[in-house]
């Protein structure tokens, strides 16, 4: 599938109608989501025929993108039931079979061997400090191949240090810097639209590195 085609399919997905501020629900726009998954597949082969989990899936954009690019099994996890319902509808609309689980990422009970790749747009931790690092910590335990995640560019050094020193990543690379066009989602947003610089990261978990046999 071409990048443009992927982006346009993702552009047709339903987004949150009543986003919840405490969960930092910001939609992952089709521009960023399509580039994220397209890179994961075309530069690293981390999507097609793989088991992919979408942590904090919200209305399901990243998981749907993985499904469109040929992931064999996709699981979306979110704490919010309304998001999961919307995500199910989005998957159905595109005729994708995606499993959804309602769970708090922090309390996830999971055998670690099965999931190859995790894609996520975690809460940036501006409302609840450290939320993004909680996601990353669990993701690096569950994924066997790679974790793709978005983090604010302003936290780059911190993310790298935490991933390598605390969460046992064997590598943590910024693949590209993107602009997150954040439309005015909540009342407390003063400007109509803001551009936030975010990094697209690829992390490799330790001791599971290397091609599959």
């Amino acid at each position: 599938m071409k990048l443009k085609q992927l982006e346009s399919l993702l552009g047709g997905l339903q987004q949150f109608s009543n986003p919840k501020v405490e969960l930092e629900q910001y939609p992952t726009g089709p521009h960023i989501a399509s580039r994220m998954l397209y890179t994961a597949e075309n530069s690293f082969g981390d999507v097609c025929d793989k088991v992919v989990a979408d942590f904090g899936c919200g209305c399901g954009t990243l998981g749907v993108a993985a499904g469109l690019l040929g992931a064999e099994h996709v699981i979306g996890i979110d704490v919010d039931p309304e998001s999961l319902e919307l995500a199910s509808l989005n998957a159905e609309e595109l005729e994708l079979d995606i499993d959804y689980v309602q769970c708090n990422i922090k309390n996830l009970g999971w055998r670690a061997e099965v999931v190859d790749t995790i894609v996520m747009n975690p809460p940036f931790g501006t409302r609840k400090k450290g939320a993004d690092m909680d996601f990353l910590s669990v993701a690096l335990k569950v994924a066997s191949q790679a974790v793709y995640s978005l983090h604010k560019t302003s936290t780059r050094d911190h993310v790298k240090r935490a991933a390598l020193q605390q969460f046992n990543a064997s590598s943590a690379e910024v693949i590209c810097e993107l602009r997150y066009d954040l439309p005015q989602t909540y009342k407390f947003h003063k400007k109509r639209e803001v551009d936030i610089a975010v990094d697209l990261w690829r992390f490799v978990p330790k001791s599971k590195q290397g091609p599959e046999v």
């Binding site: 099994h73 499993d99 689980v101 996830l108």
Partner: peptide, 13 residues
């Protein structure tokens, strides 16, 4: 939920 997902999930109480 399909059984591949079931095969990974566990109770984390």
């Amino acid at each position: 939920m399909r059984l591949l997902s079931h095969n990974m999930l566990s109770s984390n109480i």
